[in-house]
Design a protein around this nucleic acid. Structure first.
Lengths: 339, 339
DNA sequence: CTGTTAGCGCTTTCAT
DNA sequence: ATGAAAGCGCTAACAG
């Protein structure tokens, strides 16, 4: 920048004003300075600017596993929205490990991100209550905030998971299923808990006691679903339908059925969750609860920028709607079943 | 940091020395300072440090589409390796748009990343020759460097795509196919060109003229594959086998076959590329060329850090091997076919 | 409309 | 073994 100033015969401040396009600069000097900038191919250092202004134009995104299609869709949404708004994003993968999550959070703070997005955090309430207060802006995806303290700089964007669970189970109940299992995913997943609540609520409403044996946690992956399904099927052969934490788990169930000679949906109906692209592709295609992953990503950036731009913080608690999608793995009519 | 120094009754430098654990500090002051740091919960500002040292401990990762399983696998590899090495990564998605790619590259430079990784860049040679020389460190994935200039700060990590193409086509030839199509993906994909070369070479070796009509570019996605397949099938019903740019495209072909009543592999054999998790899950499972995506990600970080740590740059050109995986979409024996 | 001064939080260099 | 001074590249606040 000093070079530019010297070459253009003006002060540093004038260059700064031109670069930031603010303050009063005569049109001609401005033009001249711009020419010199062009000529010298000058680019201001974001990090020096960050140090001076305390704003880095960067945000941190923390996800359990980028390779999971759900998170990669969210990531894409976040990245695109951030790009549009002129922000850069630090991506951190926690590999589902809470300690690593704490560590990366620290590293993001060290890098002075303007705010961050915690997607499906695996942290406990207690850990969150320790970490969140010291941030100037954060938004959580798929996680409710502790009700007690209310932070103006922490927002949430989530899906009504309980409702998703209820809709899925009601669908299965409607078609005569009584013994319905639930593969509940990661044990410290907030969404998992919500869906479990929905599952239980709906069963109870139908006068069915939700047997705790019918609920099994698992890794939120295809192999996790496969392993859990084998276990569930062996222990409870009377089960005729399974609701799954997510579509990956549901695909694992499909594989288990395939291997053990069970026909889907005739012997076992399967319902997934999320509607990742894979859901429509597998055989049979999955009945599932569609979560607008990409929108989740774009919305969360909006929410974060709102907090950043409001003078004294302006956090929101956005709840997006899911949409139940009926496909062959748990169809609407049971012609085949009845035939 | 000033607070720490004051509280501990030492100078800034001593604190700095303790933080960085270098220079001579007596064990007792060191301990004392550490206690104060703990007490005050002090964390050094990465960005101030970056300004002072000209090293930010960050790298940039540029991919065409994080949501594509291939890239999300690479991203996970990069992220994990970077985490291990104490680096943070800026993720940039270009949505397959070269202009956006140029823009994000600029923004990464502005943020003074220590180096960056360009994955499957869609830039032209000319654009690369303009962008790369001004970097202090960069590694490209899936792209050869222009042969003329040799840069010591730019490395590559890639797969022998030509070989992949050859192996795939040879497999098809071995089982009697003569009319083999190729859905070649994005037109400015270096990998696509490599695979095309392999496809052509192997056909020629078998005395078959590679008809240019049999090669069709397409979006590297499921729907891209679907659309291209419909077109190819309509125009050239004589084709009995298709090699695809990647597994997503291959899945699109599967869908097209399904819809038009073609049986795979009996009416049309399909070979994909990459072996993303999806490949083994679809029906029929895909014969494909396995690319070690995750390793690609970890290796590229190693290569980048090598450049960064060598005094005068030390770039490598790493070629990883792919592995041909035979599954039902293009099986080894054609029992069904012959029966 | 333009320039000067000071300082963001840290490290480097040189003294002591 | 420790500290003082200067500076990384930029901007905020004030002068002129």
């Amino acid at each position: 920048m000093a070079d530019v100033a010297r070459e253009a015969g003006v002060s540093l401040m004038t260059v700064s004003r031109v670069v930031n396009n603010k303050g009063n600069v005569s049109t001609e000097t401005k033009q001249h300075v711009q020419d010199v900038i062009e000529l010298l191919d000058f680019r201001p250092s974001g990090i020096a600017r960050g140090l001076a202004t305390d704003q880095t134009q960067t945000i941190g995104l923390v996800v359990p596993d980028v390779e999971n299609p759900f998170f990669s869709a969210v990531t894409r949404g976040v990245e695109n929205a951030a790009y549009t708004e002129g922000y850069n994003v630090f991506l951190c993968n926690t590999e589902e490990n809470p300690n690593r999550e704490l560590t990366v959070l620290q590293s993001l703070e060290d890098n002075r991100v303007d705010g961050f997005i915690l997607c499906s955090t695996r942290l406990t309430e207690k850990q969150l209550e320790e970490v969140l207060p010291r941030q100037s802006a954060a938004v959580l995806i798929n996680r409710k905030l502790p009700t007690k303290p209310s932070w103006s700089q922490v927002g949430t964007v989530r899906i009504d998971d309980t409702k998703s669970g209820r809709v899925a189970v009601r669908h299965l109940l409607n078609f005569g299923h009584r013994a319905i299992g639930f593969l509940s995913g990661s044990q410290n997943s907030s969404s998992g808990h919500g869906r479990l609540r929905g599952y239980q609520t709906e069963l109870e409403k139908a006068g069915i006691d939700p047997k705790s044996d019918y609920t099994l946690p698992c890794q939120p992956t295809v192999s996790g679903g496969y392993l859990a399904a084998i276990q569930l099927i062996n222990r409870h052969p009377e089960i005729t339908a399974v609701y799954c934490y997510n579509d990956l788990v549901a695909v694992g169930v499909l594989q288990a059925c395939n291997e053990t000679g069970r026909r889907v949906p005739i012997d076992l109906a399967v319902v997934g969750n999320d509607d990742i692209p894979l859901a429509a592709i597998v055989t049979p295609p999955l009945t599932t609860c569609r979560v607008p992953c990409y929108e989740l990503g774009t919305q969360v950036v909006c929410a974060l920028l709102n907090i950043l731009n409001q003078p004294d913080g302006f956090s929101q608690d956005i709840v997006l709607q899911s949409e139940f999608i009926v496909r062959a793995s748990a169809p609407r009519t049971y012609q085949e079943h009845e035939s």
